[in-house]
Design a protein around this nucleic acid. Structure first.
Length: 890
RNA sequence: GCCGGAGUGGCGGAAUGGUAGACGCCAAGGACUUAAAAUCCUUUAUCCGUAUGGGUGUGCGGGUUCGAUUCCCGCCUCCGGCACCA
């Protein structure tokens, strides 16, 4: 184990602590082994209070109907982790600490609080670890979960562990299968031959959302296109609702915007083009129907079914070669923007519906089969891509919207607000000349409708969700393929379909998914109607389990239904959902889709699952790298004349702030921090670092700062020489003239409002101000300390429970009532008024808080300094801001 | 390229139209100590000045206002997302 150089040796844990294999909550400390003193010792009090909370079941969520009715509810949820082998990093507890503070405060404020934790335990990494270690994925996950749970429990979070869920347990995934049956019943799940993202390295297909730049986003493995028969979910049917309902959510604007972009709604028109000399026609989608007079050619995607039919004999060879070339290209090549446009003429001509003009039909891979109709009308004058293509192949460019800054041959004019239509009338009766673009769009759509040549069309970028994977470690589908060729859902009574034991987790030699290895005992099924068939061998993607876990927490042990109606009615929606921004699109879009389906089934009563969403920012760390790019562990580096050098060899190293990673040697392990400073310091620092939502670097020195603060809090209550209560503590009631009492009430006010809005860094700063004040106060009324401990309790629960019990005796602080502030005590009697001349601060005066405006004005003009700066001039205007300042304008 | 977000001391950050730099870190000085750690106290944006004091200062340039870190316009830089989506 290595230590950050800033951790003093005296704070590093003893060997016995480190070697103890049990989680901290189970560790037994022998007091006589430890130095006899009365200082704050987190290693003793933290396990002690964790044990007390567990013994008393302090954070059990009420489920008795009577108890539920008696109080309002608050559901605060963390994005549950994927329990990886690497264990917790300091980024996890950041969000967990914030939600725990909220949960503890709400509980003390008299809410019934649901604050659960669980595990997103299906998925690829577990399966790969299983292959690597020759163990069952369930065994790997159990081990990882135990590790995660132990680490999380050391931080003293107030989760109700009786409600823990695990997506890979049969009790859980039987209901994931059950929800799939609902999707199937509603005709939202279907099998289709689709061009899918096949990842050869992983041996599975991936959803569109999991692929970026032709690579799997998680591993960077290259993905290729393949036609395969796969399960799809009709998320596109919900596109508009997924878009509309974003408006009412209290979510970060950036996340809403990312979802809107992903759904990608465009309004435009479908326009039908006849093909010269053919019976058939084709439809294009365009957002700019106003530019129809500028269409000088059309383009079909290479995969478009019409290509083979319309290609002329002269062009056939060239077209076939081009298609073969395009098909072989990876998505990475096809979407590479740097490459020049390619394409080939099909030999056929389309007829422009607005003027009957013959325009050539080209085949080019810059048109994608997967968007719109796979065919476009090309308007090189007003679309950059068409412009580039027209220039490359010498096709005509016509200006139909005037207003561009350069000649149309040089640059496409794409602005669609101020341009005015020109060259846009034809013998078919449409005349757009003189109209602005938006008017022209509407006029064209209306005209196309009249002539039955087209209509308004809303197009979404969102595509149906590819929902099957060729993996072992996922939910089996409750589906049978009968021998007579039908796809049949199994009845509810057949659930759960448990994963069979198999000997290897690879696909079979002939390329079928791993479940095909299960053997006929599992694979072959006789249906109630007597027909026989084979089970579906694909499994569901990892996203499935996380699409409804927040509902299972409501009623986690229900064996008859996924959740009860009463529980759903009481607890939903989730009041606060906290997690990383990396889930802004995938997880959050999928969950919202499932929730809406469940809503349509009458199984949930809210349109949206998560009323308020908060993304915590990533925690970064300093890393040290020499000229040659070699990284050094912070332990090996020391400061030198403002720079950093290696401790041993004195090589200068550059300091940078980066994402934590093993290869950069800058990972901070939460266990090390807890061992050195305790869980309360860890919790407090995670929140004190800065605003919760921003990226910020971990600085071990900052932990020392909050650690010092906690020691000061301890000494307010405990005399560290005797172990008795601080002799300054009195039983006198809090006096309204006591300045400390005023600071307390200001602190209560600020802690409440800042905690509600998750501005916990400033809440902690205010509590530090209180402690600074209390440290120098002559007397410490018990009543004031008691209120302060309740404020700090949600942030540093172990320390505060200990001090609470010493100060007040019986009863848990976690169950104490929340203090309220007296507004009158938050206002100072004497306030400072700043005096300005022409907006510059020149003097200040102390006045009673309710001094009248006129008096303030008079006092200002009487001030020597102010008179000096007025230079004998008459005041032109005097602005008085009550309680703040007076500004004299001369 | 498009869409979001951000730019404040040596560092993390505070202030959302009204005293810029709360709180913490670092640093310096002092008290306590045989000594060190811990603790406590003081100083700590910057420039001129011994000082009273004064000037400058929230990425850059402009604007609105009695008053702008905060609002508006233009630019620069960084971070995140999307990207041949017709």
């Amino acid at each position: 184990m290595s230590w950050h150089p800033s951790i003093p040796a005296s704070w590093r844990p003893s060997l016995t602590e480190l070697e103890c294999p049990l989680p901290a909550s189970r560790q037994v400390f022998k007091c006589e082994d430890l130095m006899e003193d009365f200082n704050y010792t987190p290693s003793i009090i933290e396990p002690k209070w964790q044990q007390r909370w567990a013994d008393e079941n302090a954070f059990r969520t009420p489920s008795d109907p009577e108890e539920l009715r008696s109080k309002p509810k608050y559901y605060v949820l963390d994005m549950f982790p994927y329990p990886s082998g690497a264990g917790l990093h300091v980024g996890h507890p950041e969000g967990y600490t914030a939600t725990d503070v909220i949960a503890r405060m709400k509980r003390m404020q008299g809410f019934n609080v649901l604050h659960p934790m669980g595990w997103d335990a299906f998925g690829l990494p577990g399966e790969r670890a299983a292959v690597r270690e020759g163990k069952h994925p369930a065994e790997i996950m159990t081990r990882n979960i135990d590790n995660f749970r132990g680490q999380i429990q050391r931080l003293g979070f107030s989760y109700d562990w009786e409600r823990e869920v695990n997506t890979s347990s049969v009790d859980y995934y039987r209901w994931t299968q059950w929800i799939f049956l609902k999707l199937y019943e509603k005709d939202l799940a279907y099998m289709a031959d689709e061009p899918v993202n096949w990842c050869p390295a992983l041996g599975t297909v991936l959803a569109n959302e999991e692929v970026k730049d032709g690579k799997y986003v998680e591993t960077g493995d290259v993905v290729e296109r393949r036609m395969m028969r796969q399960w799809m979910l009709k998320i596109t049917l919900y596109a508009q609702r997924l878009l509309d309902d974003l408006d009412d959510l209290d979510w970060p604007e950036s996340v809403k915007e990312m979802q809107r972009n992903w759904i990608g709604r465009s309004r435009g028109a479908g326009v039908t083009f006849a093909i010269d000399g053919h019976e058939q026609d084709f439809t294009v989608f365009t957002t700019r129907p106003d530019t129809l007079f500028g269409a000088t050619y059309c383009v079909l995607a290479p995969e478009h079914p019409l290509v083979a039919k319309i290609t002329t004999d002269e062009q056939r060879e060239a077209v076939e070669n081009y298609i073969a070339e395009a098909t072989n290209k990876s998505d990475l090549d096809r979407t590479d923007l740097a490459k020049t446009k390619s394409g080939v003429f099909s030999g056929a001509f389309a007829l422009n519906p607005v003027n009957g003009q013959r325009i050539p039909i080209w085949v080019a891979d810059y048109v994608l089969m997967s968007y719109g109709t796979g065919a476009i009308m090309a308007v090189p004058g007003h679309d950059e891509r068409d412009h580039e293509f027209a220039r490359a192949f010498d096709l005509p460019i016509i200006e139909v919207v005037s207003g561009g800054s350069k000649p149309i041959e040089e640059e496409a004019f794409t602005d669609c607000n101020d341009g005015v239509l020109v060259n846009s009338s034809g013998d078919q009766g449409l005349d757009l000349n003189g109209l602005k673009v938006p008017e022209a769009v509407n006029a064209t759509i209306a005209w196309l409708g009249d002539k039955e040549l087209g209509e308004e069309k809303i197009q979404y970028r969102l595509r149906d969700w590819l929902f099957s994977r060729q993996r072992y470690w996922g939910e089996p589908f409750p589906i049978v393929h009968t021998d007579d060729g039908e796809v049949v859902p199994l009845p509810e009574e057949a659930l759960p379909i448990a994963l069979p034991a198999i000997d290897q987790y690879r696909p079979t030699e002939d390329g079928r998914p791993p479940l095909a290895r299960a053997g006929d005992d599992w694979l072959r099924v006789t249906l109630p109607d007597g027909r026989t068939g084979t089970r579906e061998t694909n499994t569901m993607p990892q996203w499935a389990g996380s699409c409804w876990y927040y509902l299972r927490y409501l009623d986690p042990t229900n064996e008859l239904e996924p959740w009860s109606e009463e529980a759903e009615n009481y607890w939903m929606p989730v009041d606060l959902y906290v997690g990383g921004v990396e889930h802004a699109v995938l997880h959050l879009l999928y969950v919202r889709f499932w929730h809406k389906v469940l809503f349509d089934c009458g199984l949930v009563h809210t349109k949206e699952p998560f009323q308020k969403l908060f993304n915590q920012g990533m925690i970064l760390a300093y890393s040290y790298r020499d000229e040659g790019g070699k990284y050094y562990h912070p332990d090996e580096v020391e400061e030198n004349d403002g720079g950093h050098v290696t401790r041993q060899t004195g090589i200068p190293v550059n300091t940078q702030i980066e994402k934590m990673s093993k290869s950069k040697l800058n990972v901070v392990n939460p266990d090390d921090v807890i061992n050195a400073y305790g869980a309360d310091a860890m919790r407090l620092y995670e929140l004190f670092m800065g605003p919760l939502e921003v990226q910020k670097p971990w600085q071990m020195k900052g932990v020392e700062g909050v650690n010092r603060f906690l020691h000061r809090v301890w000494r307010l209550v405990v005399d560290s020489k005797t172990g008795e209560l601080n002799t300054r503590i009195t039983n006198d009631p809090a006096d309204s003239n006591d300045p400390l009492n005023r600071v307390l009430h200001k602190t209560i006010k600020k802690v409440v409002s800042d905690t509600e809005t998750l501005q916990m860094n400033t809440a902690i700063a205010q509590m530090m101000i209180f402690v600074n004040e209390a440290t120098t106060a002559e007397t410490l009324p018990r009543e004031i300390l008691s209120a302060f401990l309740r404020l700090l309790g949600p942030y540093a629960p172990h320390l505060c429970e200990e001090l609470w019990s010493r100060l007040n005796g019986e009863g848990l602080l976690a169950h104490a009532s929340w203090p309220t502030h007296d507004e009158a005590l938050c206002q100072d009697d004497l306030i400072t008024i700043v005096l300005q001349v022409n907006g510059k601060r020149r003097d200040e005066i102390q006045v009673p808080k309710d001094t009248a405006k006129e008096d303030l004005e008079r006092l200002t003009l009487d001030s020597d300094k102010i008179r000096k700066y007025m230079e004998g001039k008459e005041p032109r205007r005097v602005i008085v801001v009550p309680g703040r300042l007076v500004n004299v304008v001369v």
